[in-house]
């Protein structure tokens, strides 16, 4: 059974589409990996898989082993002997930026199985159910610290099948819970409330709420505009008595990193979390696009934010 050696299974949910489930999943995965954990990402959004694009591995194909699939590697573990974690906390942060050790990261998505990236997957429920089950049982994850599951919007077939299968196959200690993503505006909040009720009904623990797209800092005049208003996530978290993990602003540099693979650079004097951001002069394209996604992500302004969030999550989940 493929989930046997997975220590924690973490769902990323949202009732609303386009709030950044996949982008939060990506960043959680990268941050966990940077903290030295081995991570798997499973994309169960069957009709609109985005994970391959986010990790820049769109052309990769899944290999098949007898009776199962081998997930697509984003990167292997690096540094201090690979498997850093016998179940202990991270010590990766004492190492310097460029040679810091990190854990392996693997992905599985329906996107890897399609012949053509523009192909539509027009499936009704039963077929999606079968696919979700297969994803949960037939992928060789090997030994993982965390398995993140990115979901489509809504509370329908994929979600029911996912939770059903997980409740059946994973032990309660494995199924750590769900991170719920929302944007601040009321429209999104009202859908996300439904998702929290879904978690309640199915007995999935809500580990916390992430408010995404909270504010946009104009790169020209550094005026912060709340494009999608503000504070809604925190109010909702309080209302439902679930932890609020934090607000994530819109960072055009993160989008650029995903879309073009360029290392984020910020205007002179940008200081986030007491740390000056990467503003240095290697502005030619080659230098910016060089390197692995995980290395480039460390210069993103959102990384310190997620670092804190992930630490809190890891603590909540225990070992």
């Amino acid at each position: 059974m493929s989930l046997q050696d997975v220590k924690h299974v973490l769902l990323v949910l949202s009732g609303k589409g386009g709030v950044g489930k996949s982008s939060v999943t990506t960043q959680l995965a990268l941050t966990l990996s940077l903290q030295g954990f081995s991570v798997g990402v499973l994309d169960v959004d069957l009709t609109g898989p985005s994970i391959p694009r986010f990790f820049g591995i769109e052309t990769a194909k899944v290999r098949q082993a007898p009776g199962g699939w081998i997930p697509v590697p984003v990167h292997e573990a690096q540094g201090a002997g690979g498997d850093l974690h016998g179940g202990e906390g991270s010590n990766g942060h004492s190492a310097n930026e460029h040679s810091r050790p990190y854990g392996s990261l693997h992905c599985m998505s329906l996107g890897f199985l399609l012949a053509n990236r523009g192909d539509a997957v027009v499936w009704r429920g039963p077929k999606k159910t079968a696919m979700v089950r297969q994803f949960l049982t037939d992928v060789y994850w090997g030994s993982l610290d965390y398995l993140l599951i990115d979901t489509p919007p809504g509370t329908s077939d994929e979600h029911i099948s996912l939770v059903e299968t997980l409740l059946k196959q994973a032990t309660p200690s494995q199924l750590a819970g769900a991170v719920v993503v929302t944007t601040p505006q009321a429209i999104s909040i009202s859908d996300v409330k439904k998702e929290i009720n879904f978690c309640r009904k199915t007995g999935v623990k809500v580990l916390g709420v992430v408010e995404n797209m909270a504010g946009f800092v104009c790169p020209n005049c550094s005026e912060c505009t709340n494009v999608f208003s503000k504070g809604g996530g925190q109010v909702m978290a309080a209302e439902f008595g679930v932890p609020f993990l934090g607000s994530v602003p819109i960072d055009p540099m993160f989008i650029r990193l995903i879309e073009e693979g360029k290392r984020p650079v910020y205007p002179q004097g940008t200081v986030i979390d007491g740390k000056a951001m990467d503003t240095n002069g290697h502005t030619d394209d080659a230098a910016l696009t060089d390197g692995r996604l995980i290395d480039k992500y460390t210069s993103c302004s959102l990384h310190p934010l997620f670092d804190g969030m992930v630490r809190q999550l890891v603590q909540d989940m225990g070992t």
Binding site: F216, C218, P219, N220, C221, E223, T225, V227, I250, P252, I255, R256, E259, E260
Partner: peptide
């Protein structure tokens, strides 16, 4: 595109890279 209400600078929040 998003027009900053302060400086009317247009930023492409969701850049059309393709």
């Amino acid at each position: 595109g998003f027009v900053c209400p302060k400086c009317t600078h247009t930023s492409e929040i969701f850049r059309a890279t393709t």
